[in-house]
Each structure stands twice: as C-alpha cells, then as structure tokens.
Design a protein around this nucleic acid. Structure first.
Length: 521
DNA sequence: GGACGGTGAAACTTCAGGTTGCCTC
DNA sequence: GAAGTTTCACCGTCC
C-alpha cells in the first residue's frame, strides 16, 4: 500500500530528515545502502545531527566504550562506530568484528540504538525489524555492467524488515529514496507494483556442476553415465536449461576433465571415483581447484619452500575470491615482491599480457596480507595497508584454513608427507596470527597471540620456561586464573589462595576523547 | 614569518555477502 | 556510475 507521509525538510539530506522524524515519533529505523563505506558515512552524517536525550546519555556512553575496546587496539573503524553509537546511531556490515555486530544488534533490539545504517547483511542474516525501513540505494555496482538495479526479491527482503509486531506496531513503513522523477516512476513500476523475477538454478554455474558430478560419483549415487544423465534430467536445472543435448555436452566435458585430473575412472559406461577424487569431493573443493593445488604441491620439490609459498598458492584459488585489489601506486611494490619470492612461488606466473595477470598480482597482495597477519601485525595496520576490516579478516582466515587443511589431506594421498609439517605449522600461525617462535606457547589452552607474546617477551618462551617460571610473575603477566590453568597444564598444581596478586598497573583502555576532537561540527 | 587548522574543489578509489572440512583437548 | 576518501591549494589565526 502506498501512502503519503509529511516529513519536515530540515536538511538537504532526505535520509537524515526521515531519521529525525522517526526519532520524533520515538521509533527506530533501518537504513539500507549499497556499500560498507556508505553505511559508515551515512551513519556518521546522521549521528552529527542527533541530540541524545539526557536519560540515554550514560547508557550510550558506556556502550560506546565497549564498542571502542573490543579489539586489543581500536582501529579506525572501531573509533568511527564508537562515535556514532554515542549518539544512538550505528552502522552494520560484514566488515564489523562479530562482537561489535552483536552489540549493535542487541542494543537495537533493546531500543538503545535508534538508527542503523546497513548493507544487505542485516536483511538476510538476522531478524532485526524496525518501524521504518529506508532503502536509500536501489542500485548497486556489479562487475561488468556498472551500476544496476537490485533484484525485486531483494527489495522485498529489505522492506520486509519494516514493522515490529512484538512492539505493538500495527504496521511498518518502508521508504525508497529516488533522485529524480523518472527514477521515482521506475521504482514504483519495478519494485512496488512489479513482480519478482524467476528463481534460477544454482547448478548452472560450472564449478558447482563440476563438484556435483564428482560427488554423485564419489558417493556412488550414480555408477554409469546413463544414471548421471537421468539424474540431471530430473533437476530443476535441466527444466530451465531446456535442451538436453547441450546439457549432455557440458557433462561430458566435465567427465573428461575429472578423468584427466585423476579423480574418476571411466570404463566404457561405468563411472568410479578414485581415492583422491572421493577425498576431493568430501572436502567440498571445486575439482578444478583441487587439481590446481595438486599441481602446485608437486612442484614444491624443486622450490625453496617458505610460508609465503603456501599462502600465495591458496590465494590464487577461486574459493578465496574476491581478492584484495592492487592500486596503481602498488604495482611496483607487488612486482618487486614477485621477484623477491620467485624461487618460492608454487603457481605459474601468467604472462604480463595475460588476462589473468591482474588476478595474479592480487593473489600476491592477498598472500602478503596473510603474511603480515602471521607476523603479528595488528588490525589497524591491516586496515590501513590492505583496506581489510576485522570482520573480513576472519572470513578470509577461515577460508585459508580450509584450503590449507585440504592441501594437507591431498599431500597425504599423493605421498608428499614432507610438506605436512610446514602446512600444519602455518595453519596454527594463521589461526592465531602469531610468529613461529610463539608456537610452543600457543599449545596451551587459554593462551592466544596476545598472552603468548607477553610471556615470550618476558623470557617465558616454551613449556619448560613455563614450568620454571614464578607463579607470582606469571600471574602479573596473564592474570591469576590463566596462570593457574597454564601451570596445571604443565603438571604443576597450586592452591589458589596461596597465590599472591601484586597490584600492577592495568593497561588503560582507550578513551574516545582523543578522537572526538576530529569530529566535525 | 611560520606553524597550525579549517575549507572546498578536484582527483582518485572503490564498490554485498558467506557455505562448505575436521577436531588436538 | 556514483558515493566516499584523499589530496592539495588557499586562507585566516595565533604565537
């Protein structure tokens, strides 16, 4: 149902006007925008114009401090979010640290945070309704075509967040922002009165189809080519695809590749997965990626293996895309790095004129990011140098771990046991973001990169040192409970009451004041 | 005269999200 | 294609 609302035109920014109107009504709003940067910038703009009422001030200030200090050292992003939260506004996207994301969601539900500017994450992952939903951007950048309209289905998903029945909202309001009159007409026609588009089968993407074919064979769900074809004929994909002969051609091409890569054996009409093929399928790897990893790992013999070898190897897979982008300024630096690591790189360098060269440079940069992470560079530096936010770091690290685990499993099957130790070490270092020297300490429960580093710098470098160390000193470094637990793990039990706690200086938390100066009027 | 800060226009960058594996306790 | 960020010249203020 369309409706006319009267909203005071206080500023040139309509989103801001709507927000102020919403607050006047004592309600909450979600603003959907198309990029992470926009979410942050819009939240900042709104927060500058909001007056917080006295009774919320203290709560918001406390919350703001919590947000600021979720990481060891606040990044630019933390500071930005903290400043917004102080005014009851927040931004929300996948780059946020999970703890901060939870804080934002929880406090919006409680009604403490009034406005959230978000990317579509919020509409999909979590159930966080609001009285008003403002869809600021209905266009989004997509690779080859530039800006294009988002699907109607997505628009409905966004607007579906409007209205909180549990808060006795009898209705919700969803508002789209248009720049021009013609855009307004288009929005009404396409989205408000338009129909949702057809749902497309995901099988249509070749890597998915490839993985699917292998898994059907590996699980012995099909054992002949005829089985395979009759299976696909029954799928939604085939129904959409229409022509069966064309589909058959694609599947034949996939079978041929799988055979060449040693993942299946084709005997006349019979299909059977090899041991390697079965494992690849279990690991959920795209067979193409698996083949690429095998080729790289086999080359390892003739190379000088370093951490960077494996990091670059996994960075050049489809699974890790999108990779970090290389700026014009960085070209020289990245090419220097290629030269520096030349004798260690496991993947083939494409020619400079190859379409893939750009992607190759990106893989080097992504590998450098991982490399900095395992050398204990903090989130702030990663954000500055690689433009990668804490939340995104986590996603990339998880993917990297999965690919390295898969490489490990492949090494076992193709008898490259010599590489296992290096990969396993690397996985631990990636998980913690720590240098090799901390590995012995990281084996202890409740010890991560921060505590391990503290201990190491105080000459407690391995389990033997932990045994020898004085419990009082250890307590001062990592706290009483942790110290006791660590001692217990190396076989020394202490009675809790016997441990003295010296009152040392607690490391101060960062305050917002310093950053507030920067805040514009 | 120089350090500093604010301002605004031009130049330059960048562009949503997230599922899979297996546990060492 | 467009929003956001960075950069840089310019100007005023203060010491």
């Amino acid at each position: 149902m369309q409706k006319t609302l009267k909203i005071k035109h206080l500023y040139d920014n309509n989103v801001l006007n709507i927000c102020l109107d919403t607050l006047e009504k004592n309600k909450q709003a979600l603003i959907f925008v198309n990029t992470k940067n926009s979410a942050e910038a819009e939240a900042e703009r709104i927060s500058r114009k909001i007056r917080v009422n006295e009774k919320d001030k203290k709560t918001l200030e406390e919350l703001s401090n919590k947000v600021l200090n979720t990481l060891d050292k606040p990044t630019k992003q933390c500071k930005r979010l903290a400043l917004c939260v102080k005014q009851g506004v927040a931004f929300h996207h996948a780059g946020l640290h999970s703890a901060q994301r939870e804080l934002v969601e929880e406090n919006f539900r409680k009604g403490i945070i009034k406005i959230i500017c978000a990317t579509p994450t919020l509409a999909y992952g979590v159930n966080l309704p609001a009285f008003r939903v403002v869809v600021r951007d209905l266009k989004r950048f997509s690779a080859p075509r530039g800006m294009s309209w988002i699907p109607v289905l997505e628009y409905q998903q966004l607007c579906g967040r409007a209205g909180r029945p549990d808060f006795n909202d009898k209705y919700g309001e969803a508002i789209c922002i248009s720049q021009t009159d013609s855009e307004k007409e288009k929005i009404i026609e396409n989205y408000i009165e338009g129909e949702t588009e057809e749902i497309l089968s995901k099988l249509a993407v070749e890597p998915v189809l490839r993985a699917y074919v292998l898994s059907l064979i590996a699980t012995e769900y099909v054992s002949t080519k005829n089985d395979l074809m009759s299976f696909f004929k029954k799928t939604f994909f085939a129904y959409q695809f229409g022509e069966i002969t064309k589909l058959e051609k694609i599947i034949n091409r996939i079978l041929k590749a799988l055979k060449e890569w040693g993942f299946i054996i084709i005997n006349k009409n019979d299909l059977q997965a090899t041991l390697l093929g079965t494992r690849v399928s279990q690991l959920y790897l795209d067979p193409y990626t698996a083949h690429y990893l095998i080729t790289c790992l086999k080359r390892a013999k003739s190379k000088i293996i370093k951490e960077f070898s494996f990091l670059q190897m996994i960075s050049y897979t489809i699974e890790l895309r999108p990779l970090l982008t290389v700026r014009v300024k960085e070209y020289d630096n990245i090419e220097e790095k290629i030269a520096e690591f030349q004798s260690s790189l496991l993947s083939f360098e494409p020619s400079m004129f190859d379409m893939d060269y750009e992607e190759y440079l990106k893989s080097i940069k992504t590998a450098l990011f991982f490399y900095d992470w395992i050398n204990e560079k903090d989130e702030e530096l990663l954000l500055d140098q690689y433009n990668i936010r804490p939340g995104e770091t986590r996603v990339k690290l998880e993917l990297a771990d999965w690919l390295l685990y898969s490489s490990e499993e492949i090494c076992k099957l193709i008898k490259l046991h010599g590489l296992l130790k290096e990969i396993q070490k690397l996985r631990i270092r990636l998980r913690y973001g720590a240098k090799e020297e901390l590995l012995p300490l990281l084996r202890l429960r409740t010890i991560g990169r921060v505590r391990a580093r503290k201990m190491y710098n105080n000459k407690i470098k391995n389990l033997e040192d932990v045994k020898k160390s004085d419990i009082t000193k250890l307590t001062q470094l990592i706290g009483k409970q942790t110290a006791l637990s660590v001692k217990k793990q190396v076989g020394q039990e202490y009675r809790e009451e016997k441990v003295k706690v010296k009152k040392g200086k607690r490391e101060g938390q960062t305050s917002l004041k310093k950053f507030e100066k920067k805040k514009k009027k």
